[in-house]
Design a protein around this nucleic acid. Structure first.
Lengths: 149, 149
DNA sequence: ACTGAAAACCCGTTCGC
DNA sequence: GCGAACGGGTTTTCAGT
């Protein structure tokens, strides 16, 4: 993992649809060694996946919500079930177990407030949660999956 | 935007490296009409971008932090400058303007607590913030960019 | 207008150097 | 890491529905 690899990653993080030859040109390599490097980065798991990022607005997903959740239960079995249940909800884009007072943090994307209400009910009806705080995004100023390599 | 388009989007959200012919096979189309649909979805902006998603751990980014920020200032000019300054920080993966008591929400990815401290200082030194709360992720249970199309 | 088959071209991949 | 060569995928065209 040298500097050339990092430059390749920087390019692919921004756009992975470019031909290998173009990536090679940008890092000052010919196509085949560049391809080998990309391949190695994939095999070794540094590149986790290549995905299409969609425009939420274009598909009617207008509301992003961050939810802070505290649970009463903390037994291993209960937490495993909770993790599985929440992970299976397609509206959940991020799901973190947190340090400190808040147990979990969710990022949820839904069509509108009505859809969020439905999601909220589905969540709280099936699981006894001590505290749930929902914070609503008015405007997404920045949104990226790129790491500062 | 019919059901076939949505099925195509579902596939590309999970993996955009698959050949068009393979996507076509999965939705029961031949390659060229499928390619045309994908092309249209790109042109119309439904597909925003195609990116490589990297593995943070593999690159030494071990700490994810959610920050809730309230600012004292609320003048248009100040907010524009603040938005630009924060957006330019590469550690910031998400940056939302929020409704309610909290003004902004950040998702920050850094190497470790020391790196976060440096980031924190850089943030608060350059901007007068009324309140900053940092919440630390212990475990990322789910992380996706996929929308429930 | 959209589909599917075929053809041309370009890219990804593998080789020897 | 380079350059050439092979195989396959992408992209376009065209006729048919």
């Amino acid at each position: 993992m040298d500097d050339t690899d990092r430059r390749i990653l920087r390019i692919l993080q921004a756009d992975c649809s470019a031909p290998v030859s173009e990536v090679a040109r940008q890092v000052g390599l010919s196509a085949s060694p560049c391809w080998k490097r990309i391949n190695r980065l994939q095999e070794s798991g540094v590149i986790r996946e290549q995905v299409a990022v969609l425009e939420p607005e274009a598909l009617g997903y207008g509301l992003t919500v961050f939810m802070s959740i505290s649970t009463g239960e903390h037994s291993g079995e209960w937490l495993r079930n909770f993790a599985e249940f929440v992970s299976a909800m397609p509206e959940v884009q991020e799901f973190h177990r947190m340090a400190g007072e808040i147990d979990y943090m969710l990022k949820v994307v839904v069509a509108d407030m009505k859809a969020f209400d439905a999601f909220y009910k589905r969540l709280v009806d099936t699981t006894p949660l001590t505290e749930v705080t929902s914070r609503f995004s008015m405007e997404t100023i920045k949104q990226t999956t790129a790491l500062p390599v």
